[in-house]
Amino acid sequence: MTRSPSRPSRRVALRTAALLGACTLLPRHALAAEFPARPVRMVVPLPPGGATDVVGRLMAQKLGELWKQSVIVDNKPGAGTIVGTQVIARAPADGYTFGIVISAFTINPSLRTDLPYDTVKDFTPLSLLGFPVIALVAVPSFPADDVKGLIEKARAKPGSVSFASLGIGTATQLAGELMNVRTNAGMVHIPYNGSAPAYNDLLSGRVPVGFVLLDSALPHVRAGKLKVLGITNARRSRIYPDYPTIGETIPGYSLESLFGFVAPAGLPAPVGAKLSSDLIKVMQMPDVRQRLAELSVEPVGSSAADFAATIRSEITKWAPVVKAAGIKAE
């Protein structure tokens, strides 16, 4: 005959179950308060030295000061930012790996059918950092000082003018391809894995013009080694109003880029909320906003939900541009 447990035994069992339940819940509730308890990795999907890398290192430094933990920048360039972005997607969803993404993140879904991740499903959006300024630059010897002159030269002999970009599928490539579509300029695209290798060929004259982030170009412009023909933004930069927009020459032309932060999908909600709020907190620091302005980035610092909506809208926006330009992944 089976004996029913005594009343004291039942009390002990109930207390044990309650204690176990509390222990199970404790890590989830304590997760955000304890995070980060060790160094954190920030993946940058482009090589060191470019504007994206500079922005990433600025944010890493400030987050490290806020958290009293090291934030290690891990550059993973390649395949139009896909290599580094895949590293983020495949990392453990614990908050200790997150990364910066650029416009290629929302362009690649229209450009490639073989992405090793789902841009919407495999990531946790954290915050939209801001919008950098893309500039069309040329070597000083290039026989045109403005967009009109560039178009005339390119049209005169299609295929004679090549333009550098920061990689296949990046906004810098689409900036040139969009110009080709709007003007029949016939420029030839030369992709590079980031700013540093692009500038190697631009400064040596191997490629005469390029679409690059304005901040990374400015030291070369000030040194007289490059000249700015125009910027891709819809309006003139508030920081550098003397640079004309390409749209002032090509009606309707405009192209905005972006910087944002994402983590792997499945991130615990408390950790995701802390990462997002701390990124926003850093972006609201006056010295950070000033530095971002110096880097030609208009800071935003959006919520995670707003950035998720931006990602979806950008994917939708780029699809017809990629199709119209006939861009093919290599």
Rank of each mutant, 00 (worst) to 15 (best):
N75E: 13
N75P: 07
G78R: 00
G80F: 10
G80A: 10
T81E: 14
I82R: 07
G84Q: 13
T85M: 06
Q86W: 05
V87E: 14
V87Q: 13
A89R: 01
R90C: 03
A91Y: 07
G95W: 02
T97P: 07
T97Y: 08
V101G: 02
I102G: 14
S103A: 15
A104K: 06
A104T: 08
T113D: 15
L115V: 05
V120K: 11
V120G: 03
D122W: 05
F123P: 00
P125S: 02
L126F: 02
S127F: 00
L129K: 00
G130F: 01
F131G: 00
P132F: 05
I134C: 02
I134F: 01
A135K: 02
V137T: 12
P140F: 07
P143F: 05
P143K: 01
A144Y: 06
D145Q: 12
D146P: 09
K148I: 06
L150K: 02
I151N: 04
E152A: 15
R155L: 10
V161H: 07
L166G: 10
L166E: 15
G169S: 08
T170V: 12
A171S: 15
T172R: 11
T172P: 05
T172Q: 09
Q173D: 13
L174W: 07
L174V: 11
G176E: 08
G176R: 03
V181R: 14
N184M: 04
A185E: 00
G186L: 11
V188C: 05
I190D: 03
I190G: 00
P191K: 08
Y192G: 05
Y192F: 15
G194I: 07
P197A: 11
A198H: 04
Y199I: 06
Y199W: 03
N200Y: 11
N200C: 07
N200D: 15
D201F: 12
